[in-house]
Design a binder for these strands. Structure first.
Lengths: 129, 129
DNA sequence: GGGATCTACTTTGCAATGTAAAGTGAAAAA
DNA sequence: TTTTTCACTTTACATTGCAAAGTAGATCCC
């Protein structure tokens, strides 16, 4: 019976959850950018992440200040156009973050195998009827 | 040219990332509690999550207010003891959150495979299908 | 030409909130 | 009885996510 196994201090602390990344909007942005390594223009990113202009602008600034994205301002069809691309550092930090996320998912999933299964695991696997 | 495929609005919005859960400390707490469905006492939780007293206290209040955890105050060995257990609602919300997390991981993983081959920074992928 | 409008962002202001530090109350030790 | 320890709670503040307002230039309309 595992009331509190020793040596498990910080077992669920997840320090890899980088605060810069662990934020819905920025997680969206980064996933978009990692999925589009050639980069995206402001408006497409806005749509993909369902963000408002102001919101995206601010988060991009944060990510730029952290050297996680590279922002290029240009002009297309006589209109300003902001181009965003993830940097190498950004991708690296993001991937590290991701591996922690995977750990969270794994940790949580493990419960379905818990010893005293019945009442507890019910609903764990969303196989709703 | 189809820079961005239509019909992908909000593709990376991840609205399932419940704000109450999507917070490092609370994610830790909930994962701990979901992994220990019989419940945990304040101090063990504190250790597992590497949180300070005040921090844990506040986050537990938030989770309790949301009916995600059930808090029982008792006395053990002549000392107060706070016992925490995840509720059914808490587990359900957590699992929904988790499935979104898995989606994030999947979305991102799809690319980290592509990126395997060559240099990282330059755009080397043709637009994803 | 000039005012209105549209596009593409930026900036501002504020309410929410995560966190450290200080506080509380009761038991145990000295 | 005074001090210390334990087990939390409360407070205060600095941060920050977000929406609304603002800015700058191009285009339309007359």
């Amino acid at each position: 019976m595992a009331t509190e196994p020793r040596g498990s201090e910080g077992r669920f602390a997840y320090e890899g959850l980088d605060r810069v990344i662990h934020e819905r909007a920025r997680l969206s942005v980064l996933t978009s950018l990692v999925s589009n390594p050639k980069g995206l223009i402001f408006n497409d990113l806005k749509q993909l992440c369902s963000l408002t202009d102001g919101n995206l602008s601010r988060h991009l600034s944060v990510l730029e200040a952290e050297n996680m994205v590279e922002i290029t301002k240009g002009v297309e069809h006589n209109r300003p156009q902001t181009f965003c691309r993830i940097t190498r550092e950004g991708r690296e930090r993001f991937l590290e973050y991701l591996s922690t996320l995977e750990q969270v998912v794994k940790d949580a999933a493990r419960v379905s195998k818990d010893e005293h299964g019945a009442g507890l695991t019910r609903g764990l696997l969303p196989s709703k009827a």
